[in-house]
Amino acid sequence: MRVRKRLKQTPLLQVQNISKFYGDLAACLNISLDLYPGEILAIVGESGSGKSTLLNCISGKTGINAGEVRYRSRNNGTIDVHGAKEPVRRHLARTEWGYVHQNPRDGLRGNVSAGANIGERLMGTGSRHYGEIRSQAEQWLERVEIDPCRIDHQPRTFSGGMQQRLQIARNLVSGPSLIFMDEPTGGLDVSVQAKLLDLLRNITADLGLAVVLVTHDLGVARLLAHRIMVMKRGQVVETGLTDQVLDDPHHPYTQLLVSSILV
């Protein structure tokens, strides 16, 4: 019964028929999805398919032309992401949400130490005790496998993989429920990528994070995501369980994608 009860939960995020046009071009057309707590959804497709635009529309970074995005917040009921005032959206973005950019430089402050990068969200929500902020930063560094003795070093002295892990820590420190990730393993070496994937998989499972993950790498989607959405020219052509879509693709485009993977 425990299982059934959990399934009756309302979704954390509901996207209903959203569209985004650039002139006549539909970057996203009539896209709907539900995301539940703890669920990881991968949006895959080749460059230009509209997956990053969709991520920005869902996270409220970009305006939409039609449809609705609703987020069930912890304390403030359900929020209409695009209808809400900007401060509400920005508050969500730095408390209950996270956003992991492909390039860590877009998601980190380069001129302050790793500790300050992690501590910023805490200070932004009223934390005013240096000692506590610092000890939390240390814990998160450890959590993302960065030696806490590097707490006072600037991120630019870190390797690409470390920067990406720091970016993740910076997002997670506020205890978010939903994380948006745009090609999080994009610019990394294969070995570094594997380590990061492993970390992401453990952390998302441990914290019960819901994730919307944009990637062009079907391998990343297979490892991390419960569900997958395949996009082509702004439209969703196939969606379902990750292994189902990748092992038994029905749409011609998905079949092409899957058959194009080396290995």
Binding site: V3, R6, L7, Y36, E39, H226, G240, L241
Partner: peptide, 11 residues
């Protein structure tokens, strides 16, 4: 639904 399938596979 995919969620239910995940639950069935888990338990």
């Amino acid at each position: 639904t995919p969620r239910l399938v995940v639950e069935i596979r888990k338990h």
